[in-house]
């Protein structure tokens, strides 16, 4: 609780907590609070302006924009949390393995990280999607690959920093098995900065997913991803500005909220991280 109070005192902390809590609440309660079904088509009501019936207006198929945005929050959070969970797990395992392995293995893993990071992230995501094709599952897996080196590098550096500490040596002398040392002593000591990095990467993942969907290479329509919605809004920009405006604002709210939360968390947990993350 004190951490939350501390967090809300940071610059932008209150806004960040509010935005993230709102998004999570909306995503969880989507079917309860959405006034219409996200895919309920009503051609007679196409491209309507905001009104009492449709608070944010309708799209080119007469679907309620507010309802689609509410369900879009589920897609954005669902995908970004899955991507972070997969890339964090794989990155931490590879990073620790790299730091504790013989030099040849370490060099090989670091080399793979270097190759993956020699692509600008969106370009690598595009190249992967070009081969494996769009779709929900593929987007989650492929974007995860892009983020594994982020976590891997930090996990490796942190592990190297503590691998010769007296408490690790002591465990080894006492005869602890390697898996026990890794699970009970290395992981808990390196997870703090990785958790902060995870929070700071969420807005980046949301941006990449929405970007791929915007280009028609991510989540397939009619599933309501904010990227798909923004693309629909862009296509009908000359007839109605509402869809583009509201889907863009939803994306800004989410990315800004998580970015500020990540920074506030970083400063709250460990101000020294400011230099490395």
């Amino acid at each position: 609780m004190t951490a939350l109070v501390d967090l809300s005192r940071r610059p932008g902390g209150t806004f960040a907590l509010f935005a993230v809590a709102l998004l999570c609440l909306v995503a969880i309660a989507a079917p309860l609070i959405a006034p219409y079904g996200p895919n309920a088509i009503a051609p007679a009501n196409r491209l309507m302006d905001p009104s009492l019936q449709h608070w944010l207006g309708t799209d080119h198929l007469g679907r309620d924009i507010l309802s689609r945005l509410i369900f879009g929050a589920r897609v954005a959070l669902g995908i970004s949390l899955s991507v972070i969970a997969i890339s964090l797990t794989a990155g931490v395992i590879l990073g620790i393995a790299s730091a504790l392995s013989p030099r040849a293995v370490d060099l090989a893993i670091v080399g793979i990280f270097d190759v993956v990071t020699s692509f600008p992230s969106i370009i690598l995501a595009l190249a992967l999607v070009a081969v494996f094709g769009p779709g929900l599952g593929n987007v989650v897996l492929l974007v995860s690959i892009v983020f594994i080196p982020h976590f891997g590098r930090v996990a490796r550096a942190q592990t190297i920093a503590i691998r010769n500490s007296p408490f690790i040596e002591a465990e080894k002398v006492l005869g602890a098995q390697s898996w026990r040392v890794i699970l009970h002593h290395v992981t808990p000591n390196i997870i703090g900065p990785i958790f902060v990095l995870a929070c700071m990467d969420i807005p980046v993942v949301i941006t990449i997913e929405a970007g791929l969907s915007f280009l028609g290479l991510g989540v397939r329509p009619p599933l309501a991803s904010w990227g798909n919605l923004l693309n629909d809004g862009y296509t009908y920009l000359d007839q109605s500005p509402w869809l583009a405006t509201f889907s863009g604002l939803s994306l800004i709210l989410a990315t800004l909220g998580f970015a500020l939360l990540g920074e506030a968390l970083r400063d709250t947990i460990d101000p020294k991280l400011r230099r490395t993350l």
Binding site: G12, F214, Y234, L237, G248, L251, I252, L256
Partner: peptide
């Protein structure tokens, strides 16, 4: 912070 976290494609669509 606002500009850094806003995706460039959202800025593009808004400017357009």
């Amino acid at each position: 912070v606002g500009f850094i976290s806003t995706p460039s494609f959202v800025v593009s669509v808004f400017l357009l």
